[in-house]
Design a protein around this nucleic acid. Sequence first.
DNA 1: CGCGATTGTCACGAAGCTGTCACATTAGCG
DNA 2: CGCTAATGTGACAGCTTCGTGACAATCGCG
Lengths: 229, 229
Amino acid sequence: MTAKTVLIVDDEASIREMIAVALEMADYHVLEADNAQTAHAMVVDDQPDLLLLDWMMPGTSGIELARRLKRDTATAELPIILLTAKSEEDNKIQGLEAGADDYITKPFSPRELVARLKAVLRRATPTGVEETVEIDGLRLDPVSHRVSANGEALDVGPTEYRLLQFFMTHQERAYTRSQLLDQVWGGNVYVEERTVDVHIRRLRKVLGDDHQHLIQTVRGTGYRFSTKE
Amino acid sequence: MTAKTVLIVDDEASIREMIAVALEMADYHVLEADNAQTAHAMVVDDQPDLLLLDWMMPGTSGIELARRLKRDTATAELPIILLTAKSEEDNKIQGLEAGADDYITKPFSPRELVARLKAVLRRATPTGVEETVEIDGLRLDPVSHRVSANGEALDVGPTEYRLLQFFMTHQERAYTRSQLLDQVWGGNVYVEERTVDVHIRRLRKVLGDDHQHLIQTVRGTGYRFSTKE
DNA sequence: CGCGATTGTCACGAAGCTGTCACATTAGCG
DNA sequence: CGCTAATGTGACAGCTTCGTGACAATCGCG
């Protein structure tokens, strides 16, 4: 699973710092901005997965930014968490009405922050299409997360599962090891290319004699999933 | 369609009267209570379709009652509208967090009241018929709120019960810890994902050797309830 | 208030998975 | 047929995920 990117917007550097540390420890990718204008630009350019927004800021206030982002279709889906000081608590409602998905009152614990953030992201992340694929008696069901060959259950590990899923939904096309690393492992991992070979082998082994011919070696290039030949 | 039953809970008789008249004109069936204890009993006994609850009441406050009702599986589905006085507006959020589905600020017009009430009832999930589920000798009865294995009663805690109920009505599908937190714990609760593991274990323990195989671990993903394999 | 039940967290160990290496095997080519 | 580069394969150390028991905090109920 790819790391989520969080954009922190607050005019106090110390606060940003504190939050950034907490988030990085929880494996989030962090961006920072200290005013609404910069923030708006970064939202557009960097497309973060979540916005942590201070309520009170010089110039355009946080709430104003939130409202603007929610109004624009391109950014309306971006989840926003508002940071509010204790004394501003009365404004919570206004904040939520502006389209924020949650609010946190300062001071807050890093734990709470991360927890809320997770909850918001969880609610926001849509689930992909989940259709069962069946090829040549080999069946992969994303709903139950099961793989079977001619009705018999196969014991597939997580990476093998992802690899197989990718192949079954991208048949008849050769992929380089590099492309497979991107698609199956996720963009920013550093792994030896030969690692792909090993997983291919593991997958073939699991598929057994009946189906391992579906995964074909394309010498000098990579691998292909195909029913032909 | 049968007339909906609305339970009004407020300690001021005049307010109840006013609301009752408005609702009866709109063809609702009306029940009244003037304190939280009576209200709780009536919810259980008379099973109203909606609860109109005053925030401030002597003894157990309205919000407290709301929280309690939402926590109990048997009554969690009951839609609640909170009545709050103008000066208490800050508490809206607290009210919504307690599980209320809407709130109305006094003073309000009868027309507004009826409109909101309709909206809430419309939104309210036509809660699936509370039917007993039985799988493989494991039986869960939502009405009596009991679980038994091969006829023998099992002692399941509240969370285990909800978890089991969810699983038994959603078989053959792998859920992530996140999804389970959403579905079983409720959307905006901030809990560690590993907590799910612990409750899974507790549930498995209660189910005993005969049935714990029904709850399967999907490595790298989460859990699944299934009779197969 | 006090008691038992329930709940969320943690720490630790077990089990499973992953990436990498070294070496074996194979395909392609002159 | 011999050579080389590419791929297959088995082993393994390190890492991640999961199961489990313990514990403190909180809740519900007298």
